[in-house]
């Protein structure tokens, strides 16, 4: 019984936490919606032929003057808000997840190696991490963006915006992974199973990835969740600052920036609906992150 409870404790906690269930639901629905956007969206925001200016500025269906076809209304171009959000979430998630993957591979690799080898290698990695910390996420991202503007010819800049943005976000997030992986590796290095593996003469690569890595996945998973939220926020912020994505390939951040024009006019939904959606998505991811943290570090519960 006790063993059973222990094994399925995570599941049990999940089933008994309404916040976690709702958060998971929001996150999963968003992921699905984003993944299948081309098939379920009413219009394609990239395809000018699929929407019409005549449908512009229609309010959501519960307000007067709405068209029941557009449940959450339309923007000034006549784009269906739901479609815009689905495609926006798609782009935001693609950027967020790719940036996260790059950051995770780079950060975990360096962190593991730093924790394993210690000494000079560790010192160098940590000093680089210090420099990266002195230049926080937004700054790094802005800087990379600025450099890209400086060295890339204007003609291909537009095409590379997504790549630049992804790289910028990835570079600003790797430190979290590296520091967490390093700290956890240090703890594991003192464990006797690692010493046993080293004593046997196993190759460092095997010790790091076969023995240590599975034991530090817990904290890394937490960082991964929290950083996915950061990546989405970062993308939105950069797009808001006008140096992220252009208006014709709208991510969630771009939608909000465009919506800002309507802050003072009556068409509030163009600003607040994407904003609300972004916040709901990030809150959900953060709730899941907190939930994972509780599971992996029950003492803080």
């Amino acid at each position: 019984m006790i063993a059973f409870v222990k094994k399925y404790e995570g599941l049990w906690l999940f089933v008994h936490s309404p916040a976690a269930i709702i958060a998971a639901l929001v996150a999963v629905l968003t992921f699905l919606g984003a993944a299948f956007a081309p098939w379920i969206a009413l219009v394609n925001p990239y395809d000018l032929a699929s929407f019409s200016l005549f449908d512009g500025l229609l309010p959501p269906t519960w307000l007067d003057g709405a068209n029941p076809k557009f449940i959450l209304g339309t923007d000034d171009q006549g784009r269906d808000m739901i479609s815009a959000i689905l495609y926006g979430a798609r782009l935001s998630l693609v950027i967020g997840l790719s940036a996260l993957s790059i950051a995770a591979v780079l950060g975990v690799g360096l962190g593991l190696a730093a924790g394993y080898y210690g000494g000079r290698f560790d010192a160098i990695v940590m000093r680089i991490a210090d420099v990266q910390l002195a230049l926080p996420a937004i700054l790094t991202a802005l800087l990379i963006d600025g450099i890209a503007r400086g060295i890339l010819p204007a003609s291909i800049q537009q095409d590379l915006r997504v790549a630049v943005l992804t790289l910028a976000i990835a570079l600003s997030l790797w430190v979290n992974f590296a520091r967490t992986a390093r700290a956890s590796t240090f703890v594991q290095m003192n464990k006797e199973y690692v010493q046993a593996a080293i004593m046997m003469g196993q190759r460092p690569i095997r010790v790091m990835f076969v023995h240590i890595l599975p034991n530090i996945l817990g904290p890394l998973l937490v960082i991964m969740t929290v950083d996915l939220a950061s990546a989405i926020l970062l993308e939105a912020t950069l797009s808001f600052l006008g140096i992220g994505l252009p208006a014709d390939s709208p991510s969630l951040g771009t939608l909000i920036r465009v919506g800002m024009q309507f802050l003072l006019s009556g068409e509030w939904w163009i600003l607040w609906i994407p904003t609300l959606f972004l916040v709901a998505l990030v809150v959900s991811i953060n709730i899941l992150g907190d939930f994972l943290r509780d599971i992996f570090n029950p003492r803080l519960r």
Partner: peptide, 10 residues
């Protein structure tokens, strides 16, 4: 939790 999830600009 909601606080950390709202972007600063929002």
């Amino acid at each position: 939790l909601v606080g950390v999830s709202i972007p600063t600009f929002v």
